[in-house]
Nucleic acid binder design. Sequence first.
RNA 1: GCCGAUGUGGCGAAAUGGUAGACGCACAAGACUCAAAAUCUUGCGAGGGCAACUUCAUGACGGUUCGAGUCCGUCCAUCGGCACCA
Length: 806
Amino acid sequence: MAVYDFKAIEKKWQDRWATDERLKAVDFHPTKPKYYVLYEFFNISGNLHMGHLKGTVPADALARYKRLKGYNVLFPIGGDSFGLPAENAAIKRGINPRKFVEDGMKNAMEQSKKIGLSFDYSRSFCTSDPEYYKWTQWIFLQLLKNGKAYKKKGYVNFCPKCETVLSNEDSQGGKCDRCGSDVLQVNRDVWFLKMREYADKLLGNVDRIDMAENLKEAQRNWIGKSEGIELNLDLVDENNNKIEDLKIFTTCIETVYGITFVVLAPEHDLVEKLASNIKNLKQVKEYQEKTALKSEFDRISQVKNKTGCKLEGIYAINPVTKAKVPVYLADFVLCGYGTGAVMAVPSHDQRDYEFAELFNIPKIQVIEGDVSKNAVEKLEYLEKNSKMLNSGEFTGLPVREAKKKIAEMVINKGYGKKVINYKMQDWPFNRQRYWGEPFPVVFCDKCGVVPLDEKDLPLTLPETDDYLPNEKGDSPLSKIDSFVNTTCPKCGGKARRETDTMPNWAGSSWYWLRYCDPHNSEKLADFDKLKYWGSVDCYTGGTEHITRHVLYAFFWQNFLYEIGAVPTRDPFIRKMGSGLILDSEGKKMSKSSVNGVSPLEVIDKYGADVARMHLHFLAGYEDNCMWTFAGIEGIVSFLDKVWKLQDMIKGDGISKEHEVELNALIKKVSDDYENLKLNTAISACMIFIKKIKEDGYITKEELRQFLIVLNPLAPHITSEIYERVFNADILDEKFPEYDESKTVKDEINFPVQINGKMKGTILVSRNINQELMLEKIKTDSRFTSYDLNAPKKVIFIPGKIINIIL
RNA sequence: GCCGAUGUGGCGAAAUGGUAGACGCACAAGACUCAAAAUCUUGCGAGGGCAACUUCAUGACGGUUCGAGUCCGUCCAUCGGCACCA
């Protein structure tokens, strides 16, 4: 038998798979059930890294397993090619982003072939392909027509050194991802998508998806649902003349008797309306200007330092107590949450407490507890169910009861109503960059914002070699007159195009739908095909975008469902989050990690099968793991033993000797593939080979079944042996079935406990009953020292254990 | 601060409430060899004992149970998410 030349043999199979029709998904397959496995888009900004090997291989194993199980599997791949990463990389190398993406995609596809991934490449596309972004633009038009997109002035992240606007993701920790400069906030006219309106529907998606609890919690936190009361207060002047209504939001209506002041966000629009009544208007304006200069990041990072400004001459009336309290502006109140105004109860909220100390405002304690140094906050008093103080008719009630009753009273008397608030904001949807989807709208002096006609899509991105925004921070598209100047589709008059582009998250918010029908030029995808492929059965990939991309995906799918473009609200049935690869210092190993080991290096040295198996023997799919070459010899020697099985074939059929081991193997590995637990699948295969080595032979049928079982993990070597021994292609085979009754031996080592302690095992028939078992124990020399004649109690679990209590 | 996940040998890690440490690495001894590599065999949680055996061990302390790594409490630590969200 020849030595296993992995380089030549792996290449041979990879070349065959590249064009193999059997790896392609078939729309409306007449007999096979469908199964949709999705791995997240490749980010076209460099080479594949170890994280890709960790993420893709289990998805590939699942796809290969499901094909062998007789499913019609859709396992596509594509490229997230619009956006900053690709554009920045292109600028850095001085090449056209279009060219960069083309090369990057080709490279990623070649590299994924080297890993042995069985993608259906015939369905691939990039988000920057005009045939694809035509439909991204189409979706935006639908959002606009259905009132889910609007334009408003708002703040965006801006890097002064790169002269570009950045997304939140590209400005984490307030630093530019590219150059490390501090990110500023600039006020710009921004397109927003009404994502907040979908908050509750998104929570529904979160509940229904099969996903790890920590990821679900991260999403729920991000959405940030909170129930409370919106309370109406009158704003009055010094002479108690009513000037305005003020709405505040609170989740602690039980503390309503303790209000001693009210705070508005500095940007609150009431300030302008009240201007004539504010006695210290100059001071107020100064405060507003000062806080406006602070970036969102500054406001968050300076958590401890309270600042504020009193509105002299303005007072608020507590509707419950009729008390007249002062009104302040303070930047600890955010204008984007609730009503942008809060009632302050310094005895029962730490922020209010600190503010009251600073401005010398009195406190009214309304719930038991020590408030001399800190506020007694909601969590603490609710936990203890303390009693109410100074709260009129509610004084003395336990706080839980009072909370309900005060809320009822407030609602009944018309002082307020129940409301639900969300932390999640609407989605700022434009970037002042070149490399993205152009917005399919124009601005007409007569008609205002006018959407393009759907038949005129795609609105293609014009060519340029000037990728930087102008000095005002406008997108580079604004410098291209032939693009900017156009005619209004409605009145035919002069109009200007929107020159901003969509964020890189736009194209990835619906791509799984396009795979169902990637070449459709009439629709984003044929409805019947969408119905056939349905929700993604298993979506694999990293966890870093769980509160961004996955929520955007939920949002768009819900919207598309509501306008009848797709058949379901849920894009994904199950989401598996791939763990990270850490380097020797325990840091994330990725493209940006300098000392990262490339998967291609490992493949070059050991072959793709070894690389696939070694990495996934180190840890489970969702676990982080440290990359190391240590232990790789174990996989090398295992595959060497597998190769040498060819010399050990003796007989046909399944031998009595291996029947149980083989059935147990098939059972274990089937479960493990379903659950992406490749590490234990590998160990099960090793256990089987150990037994074969012990006995010195394997039958032809046993080898056949074993190769199919191992194939999803190590597709190259198993395909090669299969061809050599059986003169057939393993892709045509069916995954072996197992017989449950044959997965356990008839004779087992039955565990014996005395007084709950393990004392040993006795080799007996698996079906032994209690009486017989007791007899066996009594006659066993190891147990003669115990008086077993009158046990207090005997616990006997058939086939499992016996426990004798003396 | 709030929420979530995790915590098991020298290391990576397994264990539907039922023999803790499967499987692999490393290590040690032996076989083969002039020798080495490769390969094969055996051992390998800690303590005690010549041995048969025995005691202690799954972050800590309690609880439920005939029986707990697993379930329930209270802590501690690590990682992750959110964070002046009213």
